[in-house]
Design a protein around this nucleic acid. Structure first.
Length: 498
DNA sequence: CGACGCCAAGTTACCTTGGCGTCGGTGCCGTAAT
């Protein structure tokens, strides 16, 4: 009886929608592709089978912080045979873990670490219960772009004699789902696809005529909106400058900023402060939010074009996990579209440039590390992808002396990255449709993108007649403690006349 | 594409203006060479 095990191991009396079917299918030794909306208990879908099955379950996670969170959470629940292996681990910890690997039930690791010979050699002799790819959309989104090791998971899976594999995510279009299943080489996967619709999140798009008005309008919204909330911006510099502007203009709003260029301690601190309610607003790039465990987020504002629909749904899905009314607002100005296009089209290198890069590389680079490093210096972020492609195409580095071969490879590289770029451009188009559509319901447009038949929901977006005013704090909220405190301060400093 | 920093020239003493170049998101990994 699965419910019995659920209660015994996790203390829950019943499953949430979708969980039991996924778990049963895995226990029956099938490959599974699962799409469950955020907050529906994705991790339980593999944790329970892992504990009920002999052997070790490997969980591939995209972020170090996610791994650490999961391990700590399981340990708090009394499940101790859990560990993570990543660059946080000290050498001693690694050695000890690898020596004792057969004693563990669940191992969290990164796709990159999974490629290490040291780990692989230890994994091959032991029984692997399941291979799990958490946040599986990353396979398609990052794998082709800058984390090629996501595309190498299938090789490891084969080396481990193809254990049942679970790919699980919250949002993926039909195209991405197919791609993930192909890239992981799932065999006859059983798919469980739940609706991505979150009916308590109301959808809005506003376009102001010039860029400067964006901050103006944002402040209007912020002064009335319920907090906490998230504000997404396109670049790191925007995050920092908007933070300064908001601090100036709405001093009582407790805010901070977050992006990938900050030291990890700082990032962890801000995320923690936000979760604990010490911050009203975080202004962030897309770096913020994956695995964020906070249920009462009231709004998610984008001050730029989201670069694709699935990421947008993923980001706004962080609002309203408590099922209370929440807002998703895209606030843009006309020039933002060109900016989005620029972002999507960046990194375009001609064949000639690739030839130059290859010549440059062949002068000195021999081992993989040097190649990646040298490519980084040349501002090519896809070093690992480069190596992956060489391997895929069966090209040996030291045979690359002849001009013709180099030219041939440059052409292939050019085409590969050009294709990726066109895919990104294709992914931007539905977003443009969503933003510019003249009349029809935004939710319907969004759901159709995921091949869902939209259900009528009454007033659900600005196109259905909803206005932002409906979401203002109560009138007397203006006199809440933060404001009184502000007034007192003003009096103290003589800024307000008594 | 557009924001921003740097630098040289402009007209005037330290401060502005304009041209030019650079850079822009997402994350693993890293135990380094004279």
């Amino acid at each position: 009886m699965l419910e019995h095990d659920l209660y015994r191991l996790f203390g829950f009396r019943s499953f949430k929608a979708g969980q039991k079917e996924i778990i049963q299918t895995l226990l029956d030794q099938n490959d599974v592709f699962a799409m469950l909306p955020t907050g529906r208990g994705k991790s339980l879908c593999y944790q329970l089978p892992a504990l009920l099955t002999e052997g070790l379950t490997i969980v591939i996670s995209p972020l170090l912080s996610l791994m650490e969170d999961q391990v700590q959470q399981l340990k708090r629940q009394g499940i101790k045979q859990v560990a993570s292996l990543n660059s946080f681990s000290t050498w001693d910890e690694r050695r000890e873990l690898l020596d004792q690997l057969h004693m563990y039930k669940i191992l969290y690791t990164s796709p990159e670490m999974l490629q290490s010979k040291e780990l692989l050699n230890r994994l091959i002799p032991i029984r692997i219960a399941y291979l799990v790819v958490d946040e599986a959309h990353c396979v398609s989104y990052w794998g082709h772009d800058f984390r090629a090791d996501y595309l190498r998971i299938k090789n490891v899976k084969e080396l481990l004699s193809n254990p049942p594999c679970l790919a699980i995510t919250a949002t993926a279009s039909a195209f991405v789902r197919e791609d993930v299943m192909t890239q992981l080489a799932l065999t006859k996967p059983v798919s469980f696809i739940e609706s991505v619709n979150r009916s308590n999140i109301s959808l809005f798009v506003e376009e102001v005529s010039i860029a400067k008005q964006k901050v103006e309008r944002l402040c209007e919204v912020l002064e009335k909106a319920k907090v906490p909330g998230l504000i997404y911006v396109q670049t790191r510099a925007h995050a920092e400058s908007l933070f300064l502007q908001l601090r100036e203009r709405i001093p009582m709003l407790k805010s901070s900023y977050y992006h990938g260029g900050m030291p990890s301690e700082e990032r962890m601190l801000i995320q923690q402060q936000f979760i604990e309610g010490q911050l009203d607003v975080v202004i962030a790039t897309s770096a913020f939010g994956m695995g964020l465990n906070k249920s009462d987020i009231r709004f998610v504002v984008h001050l730029h074009y989201p670069l694709d629909m699935a990421s947008y749904v993923q980001e706004i899905g962080r609002a309203g996990r408590d099922n209370e009314q929440s807002i998703a607002l895209v606030l843009i100005s006309p020039e933002d579209y060109a900016y989005a296009q620029f972002f999507v089209q960046r990194n375009e290198r001609s064949e000639e440039e690739w030839i130059a890069v290859m010549n440059e590389l062949s002068k000195q680079a021999v081992d993989e590390q040097t190649i990646v490093k040298r490519l980084e210096e040349l501002q090519i972020e896809q070093g690992r992808t480069f190596l992956y492609l060489m391997e895929l195409w069966g090209i040996k580095w030291n045979t690359l002396r002849e001009e013709a071969k180099i030219k041939n490879l440059a052409t292939k590289l050019y085409r590969y990255f050009k294709d990726r770029q066109e895919e990104r451009l294709e992914r931007l188009k539905p977003v443009v449709t969503y933003i510019n559509q003249a009349e029809s319901c935004r939710r319907a447009t969004m759901l159709r993108f995921f091949d869902e038949e939209p259900v009528l929901q009454g007033q659900c977006c600005d196109r259905c007649g909803l206005t932002l005013n409906a979401f203002q704090r109560d009138e007397d909220a203006k006199h809440d403690k933060r404001f009184e405190w502000q007034e007192e301060l003003n009096i103290l400093f003589g800024l307000t006349e008594k």
